[in-house]
């Protein structure tokens, strides 16, 4: 991704945890949705195991929690369309964009400092 089409905005939420095992992902997404509901421009960056949040075909899981896939499916309704995934994490986990439930933009490690700088507030989950 070139410097020019780097998404900017008021809030960047970084998601680094996989779904189901902890509440980090759900609570991080909640912060993003609330900010978007208050009409803030929000971008999401999935890093590390956080990219597995986007895997297609997820179920609610054995823990009887609601799961996060339905929340992700609603992002468009909240006008959150800047979905960024860390290139390195995708490669390390052997994932391609076809494995994901939503269209994403891949970002290399060298682009991440610019991404952080392009947002007024960064929340890390």
């Amino acid at each position: 991704m070139s410097e020019q089409d780097m998404p900017g905005g008021e809030l960047l939420v970084i998601l680094r945890h996989a779904p189901h095992g902890s509440s980090w992902l759900r609570e991080g997404l909640d912060a993003a949705l609330v900010a978007a509901a208050f009409e803030r421009r929000v971008s999401l960056l999935f890093m590390g195991e956080g990219v597995t949040a986007l895997l297609d075909g997820q179920q609610a899981g054995a823990l009887e929690q609601k799961g996060t896939a339905p929340t992700l499916a609603m992002l468009e309704m909240y006008d959150i369309d800047a979905l960024l995934v860390e290139d390195e994490a995708m490669r390390r986990l052997g994932l391609g964009e076809d494995d994901l439930m939503l269209p994403v933009r891949r970002v290399g490690g060298e682009a991440i400092p610019g991404l952080l700088a392009a947002h007024q507030l960064v929340l890390n989950f």
Binding site: E10, L11, A31, V34, A35, A37, F38, R40, L121, L123
Partner: peptide
């Protein structure tokens, strides 16, 4: 509500987590 967190973060010079 969580809206307070976003508001706090946006109106301060630094949010330290």
């Amino acid at each position: 509500g969580l809206g307070q967190l976003v508001d706090l973060g946006l109106r301060c010079d630094r949010l330290v987590a």
